[in-house]
Design a protein around this nucleic acid. Structure first.
Lengths: 210, 210, 210, 210
DNA sequence: GATGAATGAGGTTTCATTCAT
DNA sequence: TATGAATGAAACCTCATTCAT
């Protein structure tokens, strides 16, 4: 009994509950902060008991980690894809400037999708234990390296100013991420497309240099 | 006896203890996070009793607020001074580009001085209660406005590309602040002077535009 | 299995623990005063942990409130029943004097049952927050009104002296309650029956007046 | 220097400060309860430092004791005087009923003068340590004995019903004290004179009996 | 798998009292 | 005599986690 194709639905039921827990936790962590959010509140807001939470996550911190980790993957994958395409076009003697616009746009759109989790990461990554903290920071650094490499290719093609690779990669990262992390400081009526346009203009100017 | 300069030492004794409390809290908040830091630890690390902490601050949160507030003043004041000088030189037909370099350098040096507190602000401003949170964010926005105005003057002088004022001001803020807030993402051997040079190059390119 | 009467035991288990907490708190509050009694002591004296206390009551004050509130109901209900019977007998042209003796006896016996809680109420009602304080005082006033009404009926029947209704009602209240609240001032060998006899004599004399 | 008649003023200065402390404490104890009132608040409200409080009283509790003790003397002395006069008039074959009215009036007026302190005593006597608690309760019992003796004389003169001496004495005490202790339960517009008239009527009826 | 009662260490804050000045 | 900073024990309450059902 309860046989055969139970497994697959079961897995997805498990995943569905994990998702509901993560969604509730995301809201709560953002509005009250990780440390002041209780698992009882998470449980209550999705109508399960505290015990259930711990059947799906080993600890409150693991929920935070899952949220941040998945966001990082969710942003990194499109960025890596865009970088791959960028390199292909460069290899095919395309225009790096044009390719970079595309990359920035993809990056910013991915950030937009994961906006809430990225904000959370910004605020609460430090609440993770050392090991996991490092894993996340390493992921972030890898994205920086990837951007630096993209810039390097443009430099080699003679399109971008040389020097400063890592600094400018880093500047791109914080500029794009600010769509999620400093929304409150941006003009209230700015749309994602406006934002992307501004980023493209500023980043290209910055790369082509004085 | 007990005469003459008694008052002044008294005042400074109070201030000195407040400073020791703030210094200890700063270390602790940065290493363990605000919520996980206990007043008992703060007290212990400077060799006073818990009660003493509360003779000098109304609550743990007030210590955080004091740290962030003072940092904001400490950064805003030099920045305002530099902006004033910038406007004077512009009025005297000086070179905005040169003036801006000076301003960026002053700004970055102020950030360097208050580096720890700025990092703390970045991580824990959200732990403040609504009123104080808004006060801090308003201060930050005012600095953005000030930078936008500086750019506007350069635009009027025909030196900087028009449009995007607030976005670019905001980009300057996060770029300069990243010296404190994302130190871990910057090349490990980067010095403050290197950093300033990179910021100047990138910002000027960004302002002068494509 | 785990069927049938599971629910009812569950409910009573919760109620049983609440009762044990209340009993322990009653002892402690009476012997050390509300403010000097700690929840740790309450917990310790019934062999549970502090946390458990707060699973059953929202705050220390709520324990006090529950004790006082239940006592008030425990006294008011028999008193109201006796008053109802008094009115019925009066309507049936019975002897108010005889009916009143019954009422006083019922009242005093209820006070005896809730003696400890009534003493606590007397000493610590003021420790309640405004809202709950008022609720309790209102309940007490309602009992006064009820007694005043009882006297009024006797007056209308020509059995009791007119005037002073509320004052005499109030005098009855404090006299009967003194069995709980001023036990230390009463002759040490006085029994409840003695007490009731004395109350009946004095109250009836007071009501029939000069 | 600062010589000659300093001593006597000094004593009165000491007494004056003690009085100010007691007055402030009385207000505070009544409005917040003894346990929740801080010596800092007492000190602050009369513009002296905490240290000063402890120069005049050994502990917070001693202030409470002084307030209650003085009230008890303040009530007992007029009551004893009235009792003396009562006995003299009885010895001179006066009317006990008339004498008793006078006594009740004196008693109630003394209670009125010390109303606040008596209320405090009612609420916080239990906050005293055992020894002082007993002293106060003994004083209270002595007043009961004194009233019982007054009743006894009336009984011997054939004016009051025999039996129940202590119970009725006790009833008189709580009735008269209720002017201070249960003011909230009395008709809001009742004046002291009304109150005294009611007490006289009820007490005399109660004493003369059925 | 789901529950939620129990745990108990930990949190921040208060406060009577002391004592050096 | 007056001061008020310092003390540190004790207060109430929260909360992640466990585990018997």
């Amino acid at each position: 009994m309860r046989s055969v194709e139970t497994t697959s639905p079961r897995v997805s039921r498990t995943e569905e509950i994990r998702s509901r827990i993560k969604a509730a936790a995301l809201d709560l962590f953002l509005s009250r902060g990780f440390a002041r959010s209780g698992v009882r509140q998470i449980a209550g807001s999705i109508g399960v008991s505290v015990g259930t939470i711990f059947n799906y996550f080993d600890s409150k911190e693991q929920i935070l980690y899952a949220l941040i980790f998945e966001m990082q993957k969710g942003v990194a994958v499109p960025l890596q894809a865009a970088a791959r395409k960028y390199r292909e076009q460069a290899a095919a003697d395309g225009d790096p400037e044009q390719s970079l616009r595309m990359l920035l746009s993809e990056y910013a759109r991915a950030v937009d999708v994961w906006r809430a989790q990225l904000l959370l990461a910004h605020q609460e990554t430090r609440s993770l234990r050392r090991e996991q903290l490092r894993e996340i920071l390493d992921g972030e650094r890898r994205m920086g390296d990837l951007l630096a490499d993209v810039i390097r290719i443009g430099v080699e093609r003679g399109k971008f100013r040389p020097g400063d690779l890592h600094f400018r990669a880093h500047a791109i990262q914080i500029m794009v991420q600010s769509w999620a992390t400093r929304r409150w400081a941006l003009p209230r009526d700015m749309t994602l497309d406006n934002f992307i346009a501004s980023v493209e203009r500023s980043v290209l100017a910055m790369l082509k240099g004085a």
